[in-house]
C-alpha cells in the first residue's frame, strides 16, 4: 500500500457482515435446527446401517453441517477400508 493509500483507505463495512451472519443464524435457530444436536445420533445410526454391508472404522466417519441462507448442506464422509485392509 502506498503512503497515499493509507489516507484513501476505505473503512471495512463489518456491520454488513454482522447483519448477514445474524440473518442466517437466526433463520436456522428459529426453525429449531440450531445446535445440530442430532448429529452424533445421526452418525451412530449411519455407522450401524453401513456396517451391515461393509466394516467401517468409527474414526473414519465425518459428519459436517454447513448452514447458508437458503440451504444447508449435510456432508457425510465415510472412508471405506482399502482391499488390503479388508483382507486382514
Amino acid at each position: 500500500m502506498s503512503v497515499l493509500g493509507i489516507f484513501s483507505r476505505r473503512p471495512k463495512k463489518t456491520a454488513e457482515a454482522a447483519r448477514e451472519r445474524l440473518q442466517i443464524l437466526l433463520a436456522h435457530e428459529r426453525a429449531g435446527l440450531s445446535g445440530a444436536d442430532f448429529l452424533p445420533q445421526l452418525q451412530r445410526e449411519l455407522i450401524e446401517v453401513i456396517r451391515k454391508y461393509v466394516s467401517v472404522d468409527e474414526d473414519r466417519v465425518q459428519v459436517k453441517l454447513e448452514r447458508e441462507q437458503h440451504l444447508s448442506v449435510l456432508e457425510v464422509n465415510i472412508e471405506l477400508p482399502t482391499p488390503s485392509e479388508r483382507n486382514n
Binding site: 473503512p11 471495512k12 463495512k13 463489518t14 456491520a15 454488513e16 454482522a18 447483519r19 445474524l22 440473518q23 437466526l26
Partner: peptide, 16 residues
C-alpha cells in the same frame, strides 16, 4: 460508528 459501517444499524436490528 454506524455511519462508518462499523456497527449494526437500528433498521438492521429491527428487521432481524
Amino acid at each position: 460508528r454506524v455511519e462508518k459501517g462499523e456497527m449494526l444499524k437500528v433498521e438492521d436490528v429491527q428487521d432481524i
